[in-house]
Amino acid sequence: MKDMSRLLITLTLIAAGAGLILSMVETLTREPIKEQRRLQMLKALSAVLPEYDNSPDTDIVSLENGVDKKGKPIQVTFYRARKESQLVGTAFKVVAPDGYSGNIEVMVGVKPDQSVNAIEILSHAETPGLGDKITQPWFKDLFKGKSLDNADWRVKKDGGEFDQITGATISPRAIVGAVKKGLEFYRKNQQKILAEGGQQ
């Protein structure tokens, strides 16, 4: 019995010490981590949006777009970029669930005329050397200026007009499909998205 309580006390003390250290480190790193994430976000936003002078990461509107597998509503956040308080573009994240391995997250920047300003791949796990060419500038540039009205949103192999990547058709197909869906959602909800105010 005495032995037992010694084991318990030792483990409890060690765990308590660990908790103390961790809470201290967490306090120390909370702000830098938040800042890093924000910088990452801003980097992606400035890559896909035209030049702006507000801070789009706080000028946002969130809309629901369907439900996920568990029946929870999926929130899509729209980041609005303004220059001299004129709206110059909107960015939002789309997820391509049908990549070659796992989801591909893409940030899409849309101009007020509903054409794509630029896209940026946020995260993916495609095959190195093949599917991961989706992150190269020439591929991302294929989307510049394309809108639902002036482009056929399929890869060339499927009869559309987007170049696929040699040896990797699945990744570009997934991205083209996801961006197209995103644009359709944007068109349907443009009034709500561009409504003044929104959620600050």
């Binding site: 030792t10 483990l11 060690i14 660990a18 961790l22 480190v25 890093q36």
Partner: peptide, 22 residues
């Protein structure tokens, strides 16, 4: 006990890396 100690330092490393070498 060893695992708790190791896990603590791993979490410290993880937090620090996220904060300073993103």
């Amino acid at each position: 006990a060893f695992i708790i100690i190791i896990a603590t330092f791993v979490t410290v490393v993880q937090l620090c890396m996220e904060a300073w070498v993103y």
